[in-house]
């Protein structure tokens, strides 16, 4: 029997994070999906009263992502997509920790060499820039390996939505 689950050929030892997404358009063999919760506050019951969502909520188009449409997805369909847990960790390390560590080292070096706060601050700014370049190189490598792209796992039900983080 032919299966449509892309995760079958993946090693079982890697844990996968799952999330819901809705198909917003299909162009050729590529489906464009929009994550259901645009921000982490999307699932909060107080989100209607909170100003954070109104600041960032209008940028949903920036988060639509492509997915190879091998299973014949149609517009409006809800699917479950997944990303590897260790990929999230590696992405966080590359994007945040690498620039920070280079910035701290540059600031400490500036302060130690000159004893001046101004030079240390300048060193920190330069270090942050260099760190970001290094992060870009690392992110490029992760991206080429395909680790950062979400994968299709299965179709989700459109009706009778029970997958609410407040449920239970």
């Amino acid at each position: 029997m032919e299966h449509d689950d892309a995760s079958y050929d993946e090693p079982a030892s890697r844990t996968m994070l799952e999330g819901f997404a809705r198909v917003v358009s299909v162009k050729g063999s590529t489906a464009w999906l929009e994550p259901e919760m645009m921000s982490a506050c999307g699932g909060c019951k107080s989100s209607g009263l909170c100003g954070t969502k109104s600041i960032f909520g209008s940028r949903s188009d920036a988060r639509t992502f492509p997915l190879e449409n091998t299973v014949g997805l149609t517009v409006g369909e809800r699917v479950v997509v997944g990303t590897y847990e260790d990929s999230l960790l590696q992405a966080s390390l590359a994007a945040y920790l690498v620039p920070l560590v280079v910035m701290l080292v540059a600031a400490v070096a500036g302060q130690m060499m000159t004893g001046s706060d101004g030079v240390a601050a300048l060193g920190a700014v330069v270090g942050l820039g260099v760190g970001m370049l290094l992060a870009r190189v690392r992110a490029g490598r992760l991206s080429r390996r395909g680790d950062l792209s979400p994968r299709f796992l299965r179709r989700a039900y459109n009706e009778g939505l029970v997958e609410d983080c407040h449920a239970g």
Partner: peptide, 11 residues
């Protein structure tokens, strides 16, 4: 740095 990474971490 990476638009793909942004989709993952921007949340």
């Amino acid at each position: 740095i990476s638009p793909v990474m942004f989709r993952m971490l921007g949340v």
